[in-house]
Amino acid sequence: MKRAELVMILLMAAFSAYLMWKSAELPVGWVENEGPGGGAWPFWLAGIMLGTSVWSLVRWSRGISLPSQSDQPFMDEFALSSFLKVAVPLGIALGLIHFIGIYFSIPIFMIYYMRFLGKHTWPLTLSISIGTPIVTFFFFDIALRIVLPKGYTEPLFYPLYDMFL
């Protein structure tokens, strides 16, 4: 925990400094007849972020903050393995949306999760993972007219568009 907190504080301090530099692309001071410049608001707020990061650093070095007193690992074995088993596949599923679209990516993710992580039976897994995209399609693409991304699978949906839209 202790090391992780230091890394997080330093990362956030660096991010604050980057935000200050990026905000300074627009005027950060007083502009005549316009009031504060366009970059002023984010610039000074990012300045406060940097200040509070330094403050956190002081608290860390004195062992005041809770994580700096803890000798628990930041990610123990269970936390790390469940993070890898859930967050990484979710990221992969998001990546797949660009290629095979949401309607093929989602069932793959759900099958993986329910069958391989949850150890549920195939009939249950398949009925939910195929049912979900069908309901989603009628709710979003048809009822709301919010066209969800389909990637290279778009042509497969043309007949459905013709039928319902």
């Binding site: 998001l94 949306i97 949401i102 989602i106 999760y113 949850g118 150890k119 549920h120 989603t136």
Partner: peptide, 12 residues
Amino acid sequence: TILAPGIFVLCI
């Protein structure tokens, strides 16, 4: 393990 994937999908 049934609820979680459903919620992730709703989030996406």
